[in-house]
Write a protein that binds this DNA or RNA. Sequence first.
DNA 1: CGGGCATTAACTTCGACACT
DNA 2: AGTGTCGAAGTTAATGCCCG
Length: 277
Amino acid sequence: MRDLDPLTLAKELNERDLRVLRTLRAHRLATTRQLQRWHYTDGFGDSATALRSAQRALRRLAGHRLIARLYYRIGGQQRGADSVVWQLDVAGDRLLAVLNAEKRRRYIEPRRAFIEHTVGVTELAVQLIEAQRRGALAELALTSEPANWQRFLGQHGRSEILKPDLLAVTASDEFEDHWMFEWDTGSEHQSVITRKALVYERFAAAGTYQQAHGGVLPAVLWIVPSEVRREQIEQALRNARNLTADVHRVVTAEQFLPTVLAGSEPMTTTEERNSRS
DNA sequence: CGGGCATTAACTTCGACACT
DNA sequence: AGTGTCGAAGTTAATGCCCG
C-alpha cells in the first residue's frame, strides 16, 4: 500500500482527511488534540468521541504514510493527545503536490525546540479558528510560513525578508485588524528578540505592506510563556534603540486570545484579565 | 529522617462491538 | 463507513510503608 498512486489514494480520503493534510502542510506540526479541535468538532456527541475519531483517522492516515507521528512527545507521555505531534509524511506530501502542483519538502524528525515552537504557533491558529467558529470573530484569514514572508527594501535599498510566525487578518463587526504573531518559547536570547524587532521596524518604515493594504500596518504581538518573560521582553524592546514602542505588544499565552478579540487598537486595561482565582 | 521499594490512583491509548 | 461507548492494558506520578 505504500506506493499507491497519489490520485488513487486521494479517492479513499474524505474531505476532512484532506483538510487535516492541508493544515499540516500549512502549519507543519500539530498535536492530536489540536487537529481534533480544528477539524473534528461537528456532529460529535462529546469531545471524547471527537478525540477518539481523530485518533482513528490520524492512525489511518499514518498507515498510508500520509502523515507521521513524531517520536518526541511534548511534556511527556502522560499529557496524552496534547503531546502527540504529527507532521506530513512522504505520501501526504506527494498527494498534495499532485493536487496542487507544489514542490516537495523534506520530512524528517525536527529538533525539539523547533517542535515546541511550531506546535505553539499552531495552537495560536487553533485558538483563532475556535474563536471564529463560536462567533467571537466575524472574519479570519490565516497565513502561515512561508507564504506570509514579507519581502521589502530596508535601509540603503537592501533587500530583506520578514518572517512572522503567523499572519492573521481578523474582523469583528466593523473593524479589520492585521496581526503578525511571534511565538516566543522563552529560549531565545534578548539580542535575538531585539534584532527581530528591528526587522519589523524597518519593515514598517518601508511601507510596502501599508501600500498593499490601504494604509494598514499589522500590529506585532509577541506571545511569551510567562509573566516574568513578558517583562523581560518588554524591557528589551524598551532598551532597544530606534524602536517605536507602540508597534509591539507583548502578552502571555493566556492573554493571547483576549488581546486579539479586543482588537489591535491600544487597550484600556488588562488588569481584570490577570486576576484569576 | 530519608532512601528504596511496592502499591495505588489517575491518566491515556486502543481494540471491540453495537448502532446509524 | 463512520460514530458512540465500554473496558482492557499500559504508563506515570503520587502515596504509603519499611528499615537502616
